[in-house]
Simulated scan of single mutants.
Amino acid sequence: MVLTAALAAAAAAGSSPPAHAAGDGFLWGVSSSGFQSEGSPPDSNWTRYAASGRTHELVGTSVDFRHRYREDIAAAADLGVDVFRFSVEWSRIQPTPHGWDEAELRYYDDVVATVRGHGMIPMITLDHWVYPGWIADRGGWRDPATVGAWLANAEQVVARYAGLGAMWVTINEPTIYVQKELAFGGIDAADVPRMFDALVAAHRSIYARIHELDPGARVTSNAAYIPGVQTGLDALFVDRVRDTLDFLGLDYYYGATLANPSAIHALTDDFASIVPHPDGMYEALMHYTRRFPGLPLYVVENGMPTADGAPRADGWTRARHLREHVDRMRRAAADGAPVFGYNYWSITDNYEWGSYTPRFGLYTVDVRTDPNLTRRPTDGVDAYRAVTGEPWPVPVPG
């Protein structure tokens, strides 16, 4: 382990349970990602997609988590959560193929130390859809050598933070990752099978390496749940890595029923027009309970957007959305779903892959017009603080 001062402080905190963890053992958390929240990103596939005019707007400063992470991590801790999820951005720590940027690694050291210092578990995502510009120059996921370069970076990160009690997410939403790369030109249709093969190989390899470097750590890849077609989508990735998942990460946002077909708005990125379907949370958890008996489940992402922070036309509030989805999760647990954790997406608003219009944050931030990037609490803050203080109804799987 590379033991900087920040890491030494984090290690000194020991491996005791999170300071906020309830005695029932259920883990509450918040999610974020580097590219979406850090701001001022280095050259990457996504800075290039934005610069090409294929997105609604540039990322710019985003909410400047890069310099305000202490504030946001403290806000998460104040909610009473146990887990803070973030990603270590490959494009930031390895801006050229010739080595790693030690200053940027020290920034992530301090993020890890700050999370630990607040008594929370770091949940570290190794790939949240972003790779360096020099990888893009070589063909991105079209290039067979990308897997090796990806593994070298991932191993650097894992080795640095081994022994600090982290949970690991290898690849965020692989099926949506491939879809985004296809939509923005990172790959062509003929490259889709090759990219899935590469992501499977990357996950399987780093899973084994994590368990060598960080014994006892729990490792996953989180699946974006799409009702009606998830079994087919799982054949592309999840089924191929099932034996290398310590738990299954589940991302649930939208349902689709004859009575509520509003998920069609996702095709035009009009996310705030999708009417929430809390029962889908129950259905998603029970789907995986049946498909993978005994595999622990963790809701890695769940949330609801507004459009530029305005009240939703359907009357849903963030507090209501949170309470009703947690209620369905509790019902699933009572009916046998081995769910042991839940993360809200996200602690603050951020760059939603091309636009600042969809706002998912517990704390809202007006990136376009507020130069101070003030964090303003939504009604979800008090609601989540109340949720984290409630007992979990059934034993939590180990």
Rank of each mutant, 00 (worst) to 15 (best):
K180C: 05
K180D: 04
E181M: 12
E181A: 13
E181F: 09
L182W: 11
L182M: 13
A183W: 12
F184L: 15
F184Y: 15
F184A: 13
F184S: 13
F184Q: 13
G185S: 10
G185V: 07
G185C: 09
I187S: 02
I187V: 15
I187A: 07
I187R: 03
A190P: 02
A190E: 08
D191T: 06
D191L: 04
V192S: 04
P193H: 06
P193N: 06
P193V: 10
R194W: 07
R194S: 12
F196E: 00
F196P: 01
D197K: 01
D197W: 00
D197H: 00
A198C: 09
L199F: 08
L199E: 09
L199H: 05
L199S: 06
V200S: 10
A201E: 12
A201W: 06
A202M: 12
A202C: 14
H203P: 13
R204W: 11
R204D: 15
R204V: 15
R204H: 13
S205G: 14
S205I: 11
S205Y: 10
I206M: 13
I206A: 11
I206V: 15
Y207V: 11
Y207S: 05
Y207F: 14
A208P: 00
A208C: 00
A208N: 01
R209Q: 03
I210V: 13
I210S: 07
I210F: 00
I210R: 01
H211G: 01
H211Y: 02
H211L: 02
